[in-house]
């Protein structure tokens, strides 16, 4: 028996070995290297002259106004994208959950933006949002609304990115919500209906509570994904105008790969990574115990 369980345990290790190996090579080791580099003056062009410089990068980071601005920007993005994207996804899932004609069309339409590359949709939106000849301003003018600057306005640019990101990402979460909705037993609804509950009451007291595990999972993944925002500002605004759309990941990328300051970029990654882990833990505590997610 003992021997048998040993064999089973070895087998289990054997099966996770390839995944573990890849994770170690491409995640754990780079993460540890990043922590090490964050205490050095690593310049990509002269890796041989890399020396330990203590907390210098971290002290510089505290005084870096662009990093501060990027944190404020991503804060704004996360605060708006969470309710917008999750709410939209739930709404779309409710629409396509009802059996009606054209459902497949709606499902494909809502999901289509997910399968198109972010860089491609960003370029498409650049045309749509062009203040001089964009489609959106053309539509707005029919309603008597004056042309908007969108991505060229420091006040509107981040909101434009929030809108685009909602449109792009909601389809994926819709699918997960849809799976969650279809897992709710119909007899619960029938019982509630017999008790005289109307549609709104059924939604509040049955749908939402029974979707909690799905919602927690979606909230967590949306939350983490939101912090990784880079493609849209990189393609559409290059972080501008006037740093109004620069995000931490874009700033880290730019510092590391354009400016070649890998040491400093690593310090930013360490701080930002730690912040995301802390936020995620807090968020999971707020939305419910980990054990509830099944």
């Amino acid at each position: 028996m003992h021997r048998n369980s040993l064999t089973r345990s070895s087998q289990a290790w054997l099966y996770i070995f390839p995944a573990l190996l890849i994770l170690t090579l491409f995640l754990f080791i780079p993460a540890l290297m990043s922590i090490y580099y964050s205490f050095t003056n690593f310049n990509m062009l002269s890796p041989q002259t890399r020396v330990f410089n203590g907390l210098t990068n971290y002290i510089t980071l505290l005084k870096d106004p662009i990093f501060g601005r990027s944190l404020r920007n991503i804060g704004q993005f996360v605060i708006f994208i969470m309710p917008l994207q999750v709410g939209t996804a739930l709404g779309l899932a409710l629409i396509v959950n009802k059996k009606r004609a054209g459902n497949t069309f709606f499902k494909i339409s809502f999901f289509a933006p997910v399968v198109v590359s972010l860089a491609v949709t960003s370029v498409l939106w650049l045309y749509i949002l062009n203040p001089e000849q964009g489609l959106l301003n053309g539509v707005l003018s029919h309603f008597g609304i004056s042309a908007q600057p969108f991505l060229t306005s420091p006040k509107q640019a981040m909101f434009a990115i929030i809108g685009i990101s909602t449109w792009q990402g909601a389809g994926y979460q819709m699918l997960i919500f849809l799976a969650g909705l279809q897992n709710i037993p119909t007899d619960v609804y029938e019982a509630a209906e017999l008790d005289g509950a109307n549609a709104w009451e059924r939604f509040i007291h049955i749908t939402l509570p029974m979707l909690k595990p799905t919602s927690v999972m979606i909230l967590t993944t949306t939350f983490i994904d939101a912090f990784k925002l880079i493609i849209q500002p990189m393609v559409m605004t290059q972080g501008g105008p006037m740093n109004s759309t620069i995000t931490p990941v874009y700033y880290i990328y730019r510092t590391g790969f354009t400016d070649r300051q890998l040491g400093y970029a690593s310090a930013m990654s360490v701080i930002y990574g730690a912040a995301i882990i802390i936020f995620t833990i807090v968020q999971r505590r707020i939305t419910g115990d980990d054990n509830n997610v099944k």
């Binding site: 064999t7 070895s10 087998q11 054997l14 099966y15 070995f17 390839p18 190996l21 890849i22």
Partner: peptide, 19 residues
């Protein structure tokens, strides 16, 4: 037993190929 030896071989070969 034979089964898991085969698995070991397969996983090792695949890992080496991947690397």
């Amino acid at each position: 037993m034979k089964h898991w030896k085969l698995s070991l071989l397969a996983v090792t070969v695949l890992s080496i190929m991947g690397l």
